[in-house]
Amino acid sequence: MQLTIHQIDAFANELFKGNYAAVIPLESWLSDDLMLKIGAENNVSETAFTCQQDDGSFVIRWFSPLMEIDFCGHATLAAAYVLCEEHNVSKIRFIADAVGELIVNKNVDGSFAMTFPKQVPSEADNIPKELFNSLSIQPFKVLKNQQAYFVVYKNEQDVINLKTDSNLLKTLYPLDVVATAKSTEYDFISRYFWPASGGDEDYVTGSIHTGLAPYWAQQLGKTTLSAYQASSRGGHLLCEVGDTTVTLTGHAARYLKGTIYI
C-alpha cells in the first residue's frame, strides 16, 4: 500500500516557522493502530488523516506521536492547505467527532480562516499543587477549559522566561497547560505545554486559541485580536471572537510531498 504524505508549516508564511503537521488524505480509513503507528513514525506534533464523504465534506482525525488527539487547529490548517490545492477549491468543511463541524476558507491573500467552536475557560477550583510546583514563575490567575489549565501572567516577559517541569505536568493529564499574558507588540502571547499528550512544548497551538481569544477579548474589550505563540519557532494568529465561535486566520507553507510505503 502506498499513501501520499504532505508536511506543511502552519501559522507561518515561510518555511521553518510556525508548527509543522503531516497530512495524509485517504480514500478509506486505516485501522486506528496503523494511524497511530504512522503518527509515531512521522514524529511531528500531529498527523492529520482526512477522508472525503459523499456530501463533499471531509472527516478529519489527528494523531500525535503518542495518541489520537480530540482537536488540533494547526493540523486542520495544514489539511485545508493540502485539500484546497488538490481539489482546486477555496472552502473546506471538516467533520470531527469531538468538536463537530469545522469550516475553513482560503482567503485571496493565501491565508486560511478557520471557524471553530468557542472553548471559553473559567476560574479553576481545586488546583493541583503539581501545577504550581511545575512552574518556575507563579501566575496571578489560573483558569481551565476541557483542554488545559490557563496560567495567566501580568508580564509577558514572565511567559517568555517561564520554565516547566515536564514530569510534574504529566500528572495533570488529560489537561495540558498554556501560559499567557497581555503583550506590547500583539494583543496577547502564549506558550503551550503538553508532555503527556505529544511533547514538552508545542510550537503553535490553534485549538487553545479558541479559549485564549475569548478570554483576552473580554479583558481587552475587543473582538479582533492579534496573537503570538512564543515558542522557538513562533507563530502569529489573527483571532475573531463571535457569539459561539472563534475564527483563527493564518498562513501556511509546504515543506514536502512524498510517499509512504506500507
Rank of each mutant, 00 (worst) to 15 (best):
L3R: 08
T4I: 14
H6S: 12
Q7T: 15
A10E: 07
F11T: 05
F11L: 02
A12L: 00
N13L: 08
N19K: 05
L26C: 06
D32G: 07
D33G: 13
L36Y: 07
K37W: 07
K37L: 13
I38T: 04
E41L: 14
N42K: 11
S45M: 03
T47R: 03
A48R: 01
F49P: 04
F58A: 08
F63K: 02
F63N: 02
S64T: 13
M67E: 15
I69T: 12
F71D: 09
G73Y: 00
H74Q: 01
A80L: 09
V82H: 02
L83D: 01
C84D: 12
E85S: 15
A96C: 15
V99G: 03
G100N: 12
N107A: 13
D109F: 02
D109C: 04
F116V: 12
Q119A: 14
Q119C: 11
P121D: 12
K129D: 15
K129N: 14
F132A: 10
F132Y: 15
S134E: 03
I137M: 09
Q138N: 10
K141I: 07
L143K: 05
Q147P: 04
V152Y: 06
K154W: 05
Q157G: 05
K163R: 13
D165P: 08
S166R: 07
N167V: 08
L168G: 05
T171C: 01
L172S: 00
D176H: 10
V178S: 02
S183I: 06
Y186F: 15
D187F: 07
P195L: 00
A196W: 12
E201R: 02
E201H: 03
E201D: 04
E201A: 02
V204M: 01
V204A: 04
T205K: 02
I208C: 01
I208L: 01
I208G: 00
H209F: 05
A213R: 01
A213Q: 02
Y215V: 08
A217S: 15
Q219S: 11
T224N: 14
Y228W: 12
Q229E: 06
S232K: 13
R233I: 11
L237M: 14
V241L: 10
V241P: 01
D243I: 11
T244G: 06
T244L: 12
T245A: 11
V246P: 01
V246M: 07
T247Y: 07
A252N: 03
A253E: 14
K257L: 07
K257F: 06
I260Q: 09
Y261C: 12
